[in-house]
């Protein structure tokens, strides 16, 4: 039994650990956003668990005054899957980085998404390996010069959103750490989603990849270059919301006037439009917000249902009966004497 819910505040979710990110790192903003969100969810601290892999981002659980598990590189989704399946009553958050989640842990990420484990997965995307001091990551743009790629990268990056959609995620969203109100609203939506919720959070690494998102995030350009998705609203952008996206010929999107823009529907079964939006590259606007949110049974739920069915089915009910099931025979004292 958990204690009756007293009204918690942001402070209740701040742990006693000194936060060790570089000054100016966008991780601080995300931490503040999540700590602020927690009391609003009405879930007790003891029922909340943060699980991470390895990387700057993955230090996150130490700073939350909840249960936390700092795992090994890339494996957080797998650890979280076991935790959630063992105790579906818990609210489980996964914090990962672009290297942690998309490189070494890519396999676990896509499988957690396809299984629809009820996890809130936050991918802090700084398009660089922070903790190991500045190597290219799977989201570093083609040609990027880093410590490990002085002549520029030659491998094309992943798009986290199309990857998540392709893996069958039931909730896919993007937000940015430098827009607190937007980030808060997206995180809140993710928290409310029953199933695997994937959120890519643009996160500026001031030390190794400073300004990675300036192209879209700077005050003077962002209205023109970011399209904020709103369920049931047309896909429009621009300072005066004068531009819109509509369906063109051959399954493509077209830029045009706001009039006639497609209405955004997160709950579409068909992935085409979500994928098209997720895949937009400059000069197209980049989408922000919830791309997809559909309700499907979660694996933790299905597994428990199966177990309840199994309990009802016939078969040995006690441990002793189980051991004695199958073909058994008795040996009595003196047996074997001819």
């Amino acid at each position: 039994m958990s204690a009756p819910l007293v009204k918690l505040t942001k402070k209740d979710f701040v742990s006693d650990q000194e936060v060790r990110w570089c000054p100016g790192c966008a991780d601080f903003a995300i931490l503040a956003g999540v700590q602020k969100l927690m009391p609003e969810l009405g879930i007790s601290r003891e029922k909340t668990v943060f699980i991470s892999g390895i990387g700057c981002a993955s230090r996150f659980p130490y700073y939350m005054n909840t249960y936390g598990f700092h795992g090994i590189h890339g494996r957080a989704p797998a650890i979280a899957t076991g935790l959630k399946m063992a105790n579906p009553d818990l609210t489980v958050w996964v914090v990962t980085g672009d290297g942690d989640g998309l490189s070494i842990g890519g396999n676990h990420l896509i499988h957690a998404l396809r299984r629809n484990v009820d996890l809130k997965i936050l991918l802090f995307d700084n398009r660089i390996y922070g903790l190991t001091k500045g190597q290219a990551s799977p989201t570093s743009e083609l040609g990027k010069k880093t410590k490990s790629s002085p002549f520029g990268t030659v491998d094309r990056p992943f798009n986290p959103l199309t990857l998540a959609l392709g893996a069958g995620a039931t909730f896919v969203a993007r937000t940015t750490a430098n827009d607190m109100p937007h980030m808060s609203s997206v995180l809140k939506r993710a928290a409310a989603h029953k199933g695997a919720a994937f959120v890519e959070i643009w996160q500026n690494c001031v030390v190794f990849n400073d300004g990675a998102f300036d192209e879209w995030s700077e005050k003077d350009v962002r209205d023109e270059r970011l399209l904020k998705l709103e369920h049931g609203k047309p896909l429009v952008y621009g300072k005066t919301k004068d531009k819109g996206l509509r369906i063109g010929g051959g399954f493509t999107l077209e830029m045009g006037a706001a009039d006639g823009a497609v209405v955004h529907d997160e709950s579409r079964d068909n992935l085409s439009l979500a994928l098209a939006l997720a895949a937009l590259e400059p000069p197209w606007p980049q989408v922000m917000g919830v791309l997809r949110a559909v309700d499907l049974p979660t694996v933790d739920q299905l597994a428990r249902e199966q177990e309840r069915e199994a309990e009802k089915s016939r078969g040995p009910a006690t441990l002793q009966a189980l051991l004695q099931s199958g073909d058994t025979w008795d040996v009595t004292a003196g047996a074997g004497d001819a």
């Binding site: 601290r45 668990v49 598990f69 105790n87």
Partner: peptide, 12 residues
């Protein structure tokens, strides 16, 4: 997890 008052963080 689920036990009130014992919230803690562990890792490698």
């Amino acid at each position: 997890p689920g036990t009130p008052g014992l919230e803690h963080r562990i890792g490698g």
